[in-house]
Nucleic acid binder design. Structure first.
Lengths: 338, 338
DNA sequence: CTGTTAGCGCATTCAC
DNA sequence: GTGAATGCGCTAACAG
């Protein structure tokens, strides 16, 4: 491996001068700069960033921690984060936690050891607060994206789960639905909890009955899901929900598949709506009615905010960016009933 | 930041002893080991891997370079790579090249600077050979996945594009199709080239006419695509293709959308088949007939192979793993005609 | 404008 | 079984 010394020797200058040329620091005569640059090219020299990191205490490494790269929502988040990181000269370490707190903890330790400059994280759930505190203790700035963890000092890029839920439910209610079930994820995840609470609230505001059996808990990730709605569809028609609100896109897919297996037509017999789009699919066949969130921006803006912290530009106060959801009405919510 | 020296001082031992405890090397009495470990826990010490990298010349960093994280095929590749890397104690730097050779080159330089231990790469195309040679020059092992670059010494995990294409075309031909068009990607990409050649070969074997206008070039990535099939669908019915073979999933989506806009029914009027599945979508609505590839394995096995090189276990000879495609017949290829 | 000294945090080599 | 010296490749602080 060629080092700064090899360059220095061959260019008849001191290693320091080479360092200066590489980093464009201090004043250097045109002559020596050219001479050094020539040698650098000749020897294909590329600085060793481990050495740089060691005394600069900067690694130019960022990490994106997400719970399911397989979900198109997070895929777009990753895309946004990668774009911004790249654009600013950082490399991005991808951590996929599979909604698993233990994996998240392992990653956090590894990242601290790697001395990443910053972290963009969608935590696995409320217990993640321990991991975040660990980051704080190690002075690694982070921004929380998509999922809220309360009472933590950091930047945030969050969606509006209340708004998104209300948009979806109001749409169903406007269409005449009175019996709306919800299938949500674990309530230890803020997005799940907020959508859940917004569901209850919206029903109340609209004077609709709340039936405990209409609330079903499952998981966000496909591998962990169960459909959980068998008891609903075996109900007599008059008691059966006429619409189902799925807390995320994967849950919606699972539900629609189950309904189809049971020969129940969507949306004719039961309407289905959900949070987060499946653009790839919707593009192809506009079917799912969704509250669409600007996934790319979660990643892009989240990364921008950490970088501002890392580079110590930007305001002293922590910021919370709210990204608005958008109601996209398609076939799965059917047409007005009665 | 707490260092090995802080631990040493507090535990009344030398830094060296602490290092030994951390790395489980050499003989250490149970007493001192326990004492040191206690202090390590107390001070929440985590080794600085920049320092470790600097004298071990190992970073425990791997990189996955793919062309489009947005494509579910690569999403699954990423998942596989991340899983294996994680499992083996490596961190994964994600590089998204957007099918852009310049971006790829920039990434390669950054990765060399970071002294990553190994790279798993789906190159942007034939010119990537320069980047691969750069890796070789810097003694960074890599495995080529999905896309072939010839005359390079390295491990490979490749699909069988000939087989996959033949499966798809033979299926169409068996159904009675005689005028089959192909929309492919840039011929500088091996998968595109091989599918293109297999198309020509298969038509020949089946004594079918080759019409130059039936071969259309576009891009693999959605942002760069144009449908390119306008001239085909304005043809008189008797000359129009009855089926279209799309070289990848995104191309198929684009084509089907175009056809629908023109009120041409798929598969009734024109059948469409393609390479690579869109499981998320197919799961939901089994529509596209595809040659499905084990995307996860490309990432997983690719990563396994580099790690074996990095750790210098495994055979001296470079290996090429061939992953077989599987024909999945669904609606878009219609039913036997005539 | 350029060079020297020192040290980032750790592990290897050699002593003891 | 443990410690001291040394160097990995680079840059900050100082000197000239």
């Amino acid at each position: 491996m060629t080092t700064i010394y090899d360059i220095a020797k061959k260019a008849n200058v001191s290693p320091m001068t080479v360092s200066r040329v590489i980093n464009n620091k201090g004043n250097i005569s045109e002559k020596t700069r050219e001479k050094v640059e020539a040698v650098i090219k000749e020897l294909n020299y590329i600085p060793n960033s481990a050495a740089q990191s060691l005394n600069l205490k900067k690694t130019k490494l960022l990490s994106l921690i997400i719970t399911d790269i397989t979900n198109p929502f997070f895929t777009k988040v990753a895309r946004g984060a990668a774009d911004k990181a790249n654009q600013m000269g950082y490399q991005l370490i991808l951590c996929n936690t599979d909604e698993d707190y233990e994996k998240e903890s392992d990653y956090i330790n590894a990242l601290i050891s790697k001395r990443v400059d910053g972290v963009i994280i969608a935590p696995t759930g409320d217990p993640s607060i321990k991991n975040l505190k660990k980051l704080i203790k190690n002075r690694i700035p982070f921004t929380l994206i998509d999922r809220e963890i309360e009472e933590i000092s950091c930047d945030r890029v969050l969606g509006d789960n209340y708004e998104g839920t209300k948009l979806l439910l109001q749409h169903l209610i406007d269409y005449g639905h009175k019996r709306i079930a919800m299938v949500h994820g674990p309530l230890t995840v803020s997005t799940s909890k907020e959508r859940y609470q917004a569901y209850i609230e919206t029903l109340k505001i609209n004077d609709l009955n709340m039936d405990a059996s209409f609330l079903v808990e499952t998981h966000y990730k496909q591998e962990k899901q169960w459909n959980g709605i068998d008891h609903l569809v075996t109900l007599p028609l008059a008691d059966r929900p006429t619409a189902i609100f799925a807390a995320n896109n994967f849950i919606a897919i699972k539900i629609i598949k189950s309904l189809r297996e049971k020969k129940i037509k969507v949306p004719e017999e039961i309407a289905v709506v959900c949070f987060d789009d499946l653009e790839l699919f919707s593009d192809f066949d506009p079917f799912l009615t969704v509250s669409s969130q600007p996934a790319y921006d979660f990643g892009y803006t989240g990364t921008q905010l950490v970088i501002e912290r890392v580079e110590e530009v930007g305001p002293a106060d922590y910021r919370t960016i709210n990204l608005k959801p958008e109601l996209v009405v398609r076939k799965s919510s059917g047409t007005p009933i009665n």
